[in-house]
């Protein structure tokens, strides 16, 4: 902004002594009112906006003892006196703009400089206005473009551009995904705004991960108490092999229910004390036989259906266990002979 001021300003305070007497005098004269005025002025940091290094001098003036000395170095000894004058003037001018008490000489330079400043301000404001106007125009254009979706032709080379089309598709997909996520995360429907939603998602995932950790801890504590169940676990593992075979071929809803039923059966296996005789029976029966049972026996099927969600509450689960304990061996006796063909199918 001001080339002269930029040359000086950062020079140290001891330069004051090396100044020629004239300069000292003038600088003192100039300084006295300024230092008195500037100190109480609350808006001093704004000077840094006006004249780059001049602000530094003013900054130092806040400490009262050094005030006079610190101001003078703004005009460095290395610069010629003329320049120094010119340097000082704008600073005075700046101050006078703040609180118009200064009697400082108003030379042409000042006015020029002030003009410059004002011009600068005007320019910046003009540019701002221009940018505002342009942005308004842009927003208008975008507003116009948004409603006319693909049907209407936009202005040449704008919305028909392949890039913008791709962008549109991408945005749509992202918003779809966000909606999907919103549905997944509980309590996310109330939140509007993507940032909040993302926060909510993050919290949810973290809570889930913590839950997994906690549950695994619990399972680890629980495990050693299961020693009495080891036998039943072996039987369960025997039972699991057919289930896997089922799982791979299962695509229909009925099969899922079957799966859930098998799960329950396997959990029956955990409670050896409840139905040990049934377990023995089941072990003797080959696994695929139980599959058609559930297909054929509609009553059993219906009973299983309510617990198809598997994660139903425990009571329900236990009830099912008891029911199956009574049902399954009975049915297996019924269907061992009749369902060989279907067994083969299932094994496929």
């Amino acid at each position: 902004m001001n080339p002269e001021s930029s040359s000086g300003g950062h020079c140290p305070s001891f330069m004051f002594n090396s100044l020629p007497p004239q300069q000292q005098f003038s600088s003192l004269i100039a300084n006295h009112p300024i230092s008195g005025i500037v100190k109480p002025d609350p808006g001093w940091p704004e000077f840094s906006v006006y004249g780059g290094q001049l602000g530094n001098g003013y900054l130092n003036q806040n400490t009262p003892g050094v005030a006079d000395q610190t101001f003078t170095p703004a005009n460095s000894a290395t610069v010629s006196p003329k320049k120094r004058k010119a340097d000082k003037v704008p600073s005075l001018q700046v101050v006078s703009e703040k609180d118009k008490k200064i009697k400082g000489c108003a030379e042409e330079g000042d006015s020029k400089i002030t003009h410059q400043y004002s011009n600068c301000d005007n320019k910046s404001s003009n540019s701002k206005e221009a940018s505002n106007a342009s942005s308004k125009e842009k927003s208008k254009v975008s507003e116009v473009q948004k409603p006319d979706y693909i049907h209407v032709r936009a202005r040449r080379g704008q919305a028909t551009d392949s890039h913008s089309l791709a962008e549109r598709v991408r945005r749509e997909k992202i918003s779809e995904r966000m909606k999907y996520l919103q549905d997944l995360v509980p309590g996310c429907n109330k939140i509007t705004g993507k940032a909040g939603m993302l926060d909510e998602i993050i919290n949810y995932v973290q809570s889930l991960q913590k839950q997994v950790e906690f549950l695994s801890m619990k399972l680890a504590t629980v495990n050693p108490e299961l020693d009495f169940n080891i036998d039943s676990i072996f039987t369960k593992e025997m039972l699991q092999s057919p289930i896997q075979g089922l799982g791979c071929s299962s695509e229909t809803a009925a099969d899922f229910q079957l799966n859930s039923m098998e799960q329950l059966v396997s959990y029956c296996g955990l409670d050896m004390d409840i139905n040990s005789t049934e377990m023995a029976l089941r072990r003797s029966i080959s696994s695929p036989i139980r599959i058609p049972e559930t297909f054929m026996e509609s009553s059993c099927f219906n009973q299983i259906q309510p617990t198809a969600t598997w994660d139903a509450d425990l009571q329900n689960l236990y009830k099912m266990e008891f029911e199956q304990g009574t049902l399954i061996p009975f049915q297996s006796h019924q269907f061992t002979g009749s369902n060989d063909g279907s067994n083969m199918k299932m094994e496929m």
Binding site: V212, L215, V222, W310
Partner: peptide, 12 residues
């Protein structure tokens, strides 16, 4: 989490 919860319940 659901499965683990049910497992924990069962075992406990």
């Amino acid at each position: 989490v659901e499965v683990m919860q049910t497992l924990v319940d069962l075992y406990t």
